[in-house]
Design a protein around this nucleic acid. Structure first.
Lengths: 235, 235
DNA sequence: GCAAAAGTGTTTGATCTACACCCATGA
DNA sequence: TCATGGGTGTAGATCAAACACTTTTGC
């Protein structure tokens, strides 16, 4: 069969729409937050949704995710990890749209969603505040949460959610919020420090009404060199 | 903006092809195997490829994966897990095709790919035997391998690769092949038995020229009841 | 008896858990 | 000086690695 004929026969298949949706996690010091937008177009006009849109026909999916997240929220330089693809026939009321979900952890202090210039309003919401969402976005969100919980224990991605410099208690609070557990303070500290990927700084917190805590930095270089030697971050 | 107008504006986006590709792992007692087919159509006619095809416009992606795997290899009742979606613009020479890869572990003894009736030849190949593959299938395969290696340590999916009844040495060989390591026999046994998900049978191997090994079965029920109590399978 | 693999026990050191205790700061 | 969290030490339990040893089968 010639290429031409084949192409002809296949044309009936080339009618899918492809979209991306981004689950962006943040942490405000107490609870996990998700970046949502208010939809500015049908369907689900005005409903809360994950930032997402249709991919252009000449655009890589990964690049589309980055572009679309930027277009809708102003966020830049965000590392997006692919989560899963959702392809039920009836998931989009306006046609056959397959969506690929991405997720990301960002440092909330670096991004304040108060954009005067963007048409769409983006804002942080805690899990508890989120109820109805457009499309199957609630399902995407749950899937992202599961992925986050299992990834956060095996890779040092939690630090993405914190400011550059942070205290050990901040990390502990973060892990407790994400994994929904409690850790013993002494043991948590010993464990995380024993991995050797935190660089202690000669700085402390300011203006707290108790003994100020030492600040630490995640030591990316050291983590990479340890990784090459077979070291695995865990818990 | 009305729904009609919106639909009109969007039509330019609805020109994607969606395909699925399946990475099916088997184990022959010594090394990990992958089920491949010889392509019967352009492009890459005659080349080795993962079983895969275009999804129909009215078909769920998950269901398409099951159907296509069956059409191409005769395999049935296979649990397919979604792996990742590959969406580079130039990954398919005949148009914009986004593919979603699935993967699965099956018991090789239950499936002998010697189908007289199927047009396409499916066969097992070990990793070492596989070189050139159609499209970006080599990349999909590598991704599946990574996923397999990390999943196999956290969930009791390795048993899918073994016959119903197996010896402890068989499991150990399997784990060593998949993870590409060596385990101490005594310690491996203690660990896997201590999890309490293997049911010892009153049977042994036959026709071996050494002391015959006891046979075991994976105890699915017990695994599920332990899981509910927070038990985690590991290593 | 011998080869070959099945199967078990022990020692040692590392790691985890629980919990008690001391320290530095602001008010 | 008191309240509040920061920060540390230790005993006991649990777990993991290394390795030697015994058992059962076919030939």
């Amino acid at each position: 069969m010639s290429l031409e004929l084949e192409r002809e026969r296949l044309s009936a298949f080339f009618q899918f729409g492809q979209s991306v949706d981004c689950v962006v996690f943040g942490f405000d010091g107490v609870s996990l937050q998700i970046l949502v937008i208010e939809r500015g177009a049908e369907p689900f006009y005005g409903a809360e949704a994950l930032p997402g849109d249709l991919v252009r026909i000449d655009e890589d999916i990964d690049k589309a995710a980055t572009r679309i997240l930027h277009d809708l929220t102003g966020l830049d330089n965000v590392f997006l990890d692919q989560l899963k693809t959702f392809g039920r026939v009836d998931r989009h009321p306006m046609g056959r749209v397959v969506t690929t979900a991405f997720y990301s952890l960002i440092n909330q202090t670096k991004y304040n969603p108060r954009p005067a210039s963007w048409a769409v309003k983006a804002r942080w919401k805690s899990l508890a505040e989120l109820h109805e969402m457009a499309f199957d976005h609630r399902e995407l969100l749950e899937t992202a949460l599961d992925a986050l919980q299992s990834q956060v224990r095996q890779q040092p991605i939690g630090f993405e959610l914190l400011p550059e410099e942070f205290t050990l208690t901040q990390i502990q609070n973060l892990y407790e919020a994400v994994l929904n557990t409690q850790f013993d303070k002494a043991n948590f500290r010993k464990k995380i420090l024993s991995m050797g990927v935190l660089k202690p700084l000669d700085k402390t917190e300011k203006a707290v009404r108790h003994r100020p805590a030492r600040l630490y930095q995640f030591d990316t270089q050291r983590y990479h060199s340890l990784s090459k030697q077979g070291f695995l971050f865990e818990l």
